[in-house]
Design a binder for these strands. Sequence first.
DNA 1: CATAAACTGTTAGTACACAAACTAATTTGC
DNA 2: GCAAATTAGTTTGTGTACTAACAGTTTATG
Lengths: 157, 157
Amino acid sequence: MKKMPLSVVDTDHHDADSMAAAADYQLEDQVGFIMRCVNQRHLSIFSRLIPELTPTQFSALAKLCATGQASQNELGRMIAIDAATIKGVVDRLKHRGLISSESQPSDLRRLILKPTEEGRQLFHQISAAARQVSEDTLKPLSEKEKQVFMNLLAKLR
Amino acid sequence: MKKMPLSVVDTDHHDADSMAAAADYQLEDQVGFIMRCVNQRHLSIFSRLIPELTPTQFSALAKLCATGQASQNELGRMIAIDAATIKGVVDRLKHRGLISSESQPSDLRRLILKPTEEGRQLFHQISAAARQVSEDTLKPLSEKEKQVFMNLLAKLR
DNA sequence: CATAAACTGTTAGTACACAAACTAATTTGC
DNA sequence: GCAAATTAGTTTGTGTACTAACAGTTTATG
């Protein structure tokens, strides 16, 4: 790793305020940046322990197994995924035979989604690994710290 | 909001362990799920306060303004973005005239990236807003809680 | 010095994620 | 009873994000 010549302060950038603000802006101290990194680590743990599904696909399948059935948009709302995104997720799960869909006679706009027997089986098979993913992600923290962290994280929802 | 009929426990799903594991699996209590939600909120705050750039584009520009220059892959490494992804980010910043690139004579593989004057100006203009993004994201926490949270979050990197 | 190993950037492929614009179906409000 | 608003799902477009495979360049090694 070579050090690059640092030359931040160079020219006229308007007011003194924005100069000072920009000068001591530390990208790696910002919540968003660190969260992105933590998420990268989490995704890597997830795909190692559960190579069969993406986190989003697993969320959808898990929620569908928990509720029994739901319409497509309804499912998206339950797991915080918008209508445009959930479509692709559902298509892929359907294509793999993990969920089924049929239109609801009483409301022709709606697609009723249900997990197939295969989908339920897969969910049950990997639910232990899913719990392990959370555990591994929080591994760097002590039991007490985990509780505090999860508590604060939930407040930022 | 209508309640759906809950019918989770229905058929033979192998061992008692995985049944029990699956039965009390609460998606909304998992780190990964909550982090995704927190990130959604953060992204929404970001795009409201800084509509000019995405968080990733801002990271790249900010780091380039801080270091003066870097090669493409080097820049990616500094902000935790892989080679395939950084290409698109750099292309878009270049297309908008915020950074420039030229190949390095001493190593023909490398593209040396630098912020343009316009890029530097934009960075200085929005750096205050960038700090505000972090502040707003952490708003639900008290000062003490913010410190604790950032400390624990950093441990999960 | 030759060549294997490592590195830089590129491309293709898959999968989110969201905004905006659209169709069709259903509710509502007057 | 009917127009207006709402809802469900789809499509398009943009922007991450990662894997895998690849070509050209540089470096390290035998």
